[in-house]
């Protein structure tokens, strides 16, 4: 093996290692949730800290739980509980809303799960 070959081999190994670090680390991890209540301004809530939030909507209190960089509707005073069944949101662009209570949450992150959403 010539010196050049060893050099190429070394560079190739480093390159493949870089590929693992680049493509296998989860960079879609969310940083913030944008919470919109009724007609109010959307507010950005950090997902770093585990806690429970109580958002007062138009028909009661929606309880939001933040855990491990994820967020979900824990309780909501709505009949269908669609927001609660949406489960945990953790990737950029994920969205859940409680329409009867006028509460919506959306994950804000550098990389988004979707390019665009069409309703």
């Amino acid at each position: 093996m010539k010196t050049g070959d060893k050099l190429i081999l070394a560079v190739a190994v480093i390159f493949v290692g870089w590929l693992y670090s680049h493509f296998w680390t989860d960079r879609g991890h969310a940083d913030f949730a944008r919470i919109t209540v009724a007609d109010g301004e959307p507010q950005l809530i950090s997902l770093d800290e585990n806690r429970l939030l109580e958002m007062k909507g138009t028909s009661g209190i929606s309880e939001l739980e933040i855990n491990n960089g994820r967020i979900r509707f824990k309780h909501s005073p709505c009949p269908n509980q669609i927001c609660v069944h949406a489960g945990w949101l953790q990737h950029g662009g994920e969205f859940a809303a409680c329409l009867p209570n006028h509460v919506a949450i959306e994950i804000v992150a550098n990389t988004t799960l979707f390019d665009a959403i069409n309703f």
């Binding site: 010196t3 050049g4 070959d5 081999l9 190739a12």
Partner: peptide
């Protein structure tokens, strides 16, 4: 010819 078969093959 600074590279040999192994280098070219990997590339």
């Amino acid at each position: 010819h600074y590279l040999g078969a192994v280098g070219y093959s990997i590339l």
